[in-house]
Nucleic acid binder design. Structure first.
Lengths: 120, 120
DNA sequence: CAATCATATGAACGAATGATCATATGTTCA
DNA sequence: TGAACATATGATCATTCGTTCATATGATTG
């Protein structure tokens, strides 16, 4: 593993070895980075972003969200499942209808950071 | 547009009209949400996340990153382009080599928020 | 318990995506 | 200027993803 510093790169050895080895020591576990990418991947779809934004205003049932966004109930339900699996959203049942809402303020914070970058 | 509140939903009208109309007024423009999704989409790939993390430690040339992550120079270059288009990364040229680094502290902040959620 | 409504789920299909290979661009130096 | 090197780009291809349709599950109410 360590001697990968000397591995070929491009056609030859061009690595700045000290930097590479320093950085290699400081990056988090593969798993953490994978989960992180997975988290952002879920944010990275405009339907899901719209759902999250909608839920940041008020809890809502599947049906209302579908109507509001102009998509099938099925599409919304599928996406809500993805959002729930990543714990970005939680649900409560009230009779036949299920109300969804943001899981916690992390979600709001992440959205906020994103908006800052976009609107800068 | 406004009377969409009465549009069919599921098989019939099931919308909670007040909530829907309130929320409809409060969500940002389509464009902003689209850009936001696009931003997170870029974060949402483990190769790109790894690149960003690596660059959060130190600026680096394409070649070093490729070696460090065990991917082709071409693959890294393609992804760096995506990261640069979204202004998550900036570059400076020094002779033949191009050094990349994080564009600003927003990127660090967004990564940080993500890690918090993942590690909670 | 049968009908109705809200939601969830599985299959299918077209569109988007990321890695690789081959090659082009751009920079240095003999 | 021409060889060598670092990076960028275009084409291709297998995989992934998001939506829809059809249908299942679960809950209420007559």
């Amino acid at each position: 593993m360590e001697d990968a510093y000397n591995a070929d790169c491009c056609d030859f050895i061009c690595a700045h070895e000290e930097i590479v080895s320093t950085v290699r020591r400081e990056i988090p576990d593969e798993d953490v980075l994978y989960d992180l990418a997975e988290l952002f991947r879920i944010f990275g779809d405009s339907t899901r972003i719209r759902i999250l934004y909608v839920l940041s205003v008020s809890e809502m049932c599947v049906c209302d969200i579908a109507q509001l966004l102009g998509l099938t109930q099925s599409a919304i339900s599928h996406q809500l499942k993805a959002l729930k699996n990543t714990r970005l959203v939680k649900s409560r049942r009230d009779g036949k209808t299920v109300f969804y809402s943001l899981a916690d303020d992390h979600v709001r914070a992440i959205l906020g950071q994103g908006v800052e970058h976009v609107e800068e």
